[in-house]
Design a protein around this nucleic acid. Structure first.
Lengths: 219, 219
DNA sequence: CCGGTATTTATACGCTTGCATAATTAGAGC
DNA sequence: GCTCTAATTATGCAAGCGTATAAATACCGG
């Protein structure tokens, strides 16, 4: 171990992936608590336990870090929703049910996630890179949803033509997003699970099927 | 007319209300184009055709101006939706139909409005004043919606008990908000009026009535 | 153990920010 | 026309921002 200069802090090196992850995680914490304006490079660096210059080593500009953070939080929510499918029963109606409930419950429906999402979304209009990232995410989510809807309709013995499933996917996506907003922004005035139930009921009405296979095919 | 000093710009005085409105309007333009970060006092002042010191004369701190701007944009959207009711036919189903279509069409469903809304919403978690403003707006909107829903249900000869209308209002609010998001964020991939139609169809399914009185009461 | 280099700290730069304050002047009232 | 004052311009301040860069050093490989 070499002797250090009197004033320089000792440090350990980390791998590039870990460093990036840590910086992104620190960014998300800052944004969640204080919005994008609160996520200064100094604050992020402090959170990550490094100094500000290190950020620039791993991300050429702050915008690159912000962009990476956005993609990370979107991916996190997507993975959390998909994970719910892994433990869902095999019937497609159960799967759609589980997917909706995952999106309308913890940890996805959370005020921190709302702050993160809104902070980034506000930049979509002005920033083409953010706009592209959002578009990709939206279409990916909707396609996944459309596939789940198609399978649920077929399992209930109902027709599932693409023009209809597309329209259903748009509507169901809206129900999920809208209730997610309500839950994140005003979660304290709803009973536990209330919004998930409300979402399931609305989606059952829109699709005209039950998302509980024991109840039979169509409503 | 007094002679001016050589270096000082000539000016005209305006009334307090006009000045506040102009400053708020300038703020909204800045936020819509560049997000909250782009709405510096210098930029806002430039937009409003005044100098930065004047902002402080009318608003004690920048936060006060931001808060006023948020309330103004929310009020604008509320008024635009209510205006649609004024020209709707008298049947409550027509009224709910008109309300939904107003919220899912221009000028409410607009990328500028989304940028404004998201920029402000991102601060709800961290700022109690913003949180309170949002809560007031949400409950006001939902109450208005619930009243429209109740009247539409009654006009269709269906029961309208408060526990059900509350739940319907939450779901319909979600549909409107969710589709509004889709339309603001990805409006270019939808046909004209497509989202309004999707919204009407979804809401008709949730309420199990038609929002077109000529088609009769229940679906 | 030593050398080399990639990683990290520390510091500085130029610019921007919200706020403070003094000076000027438009315009209302007499 | 004159006086007064509220409204407005102009300017400055201190702090903070993202970025730049030099120096130090952890640690890998030979």
């Amino acid at each position: 171990m070499k002797t250090q200069t009197a004033t320089r802090k000792s440090f350990r090196r980390e791998g590039e992936d870990k460093r990036r992850e840590d910086l992104i995680a620190a960014t998300l914490e800052c944004v969640a608590e204080r919005g994008l304006a609160g996520a200064t490079v100094r604050e992020i660096a402090l959170r990550a336990g490094v100094t500000a210059g290190l950020i620039r080593y791993y991300f050429p500009a702050k915008d690159d870090l912000i962009s990476a953070a956005y993609r990370a939080v979107m991916k996190r929510m997507t993975v959390q929703a998909s994970d719910a499918l892994k433990s869902a029963a095999d019937d497609p109606r159960d799967r759609l049910n589980a997917f909706v409930k995952a999106n309308l419950g913890q940890p996805i429906m959370d005020p921190d996630n709302l702050s993160l999402w809104a902070g980034f979304i506000a930049m979509v209009h002005a920033d083409p890179a953010m706009a592209l990232a959002h578009r990709d995410g939206y279409l990916g989510f909707r396609d996944e949803l459309e596939a789940l809807i198609r399978q649920a309709l077929l399992a209930a013995g109902k027709p599932a033509e693409p023009v209809h499933t597309r329209r259903h996917a748009i509507a169901v996506n809206a129900i999920i997003d809208g209730l997610w907003l309500e839950g994140c922004l005003a979660g304290d005035i709803f009973a536990d699970g209330e919004l998930a139930e409300t979402g399931i009921a609305a989606i059952e009405a829109v699709l005209a099927i039950s998302l509980n296979p024991e109840k039979g095919g169509a409503i």
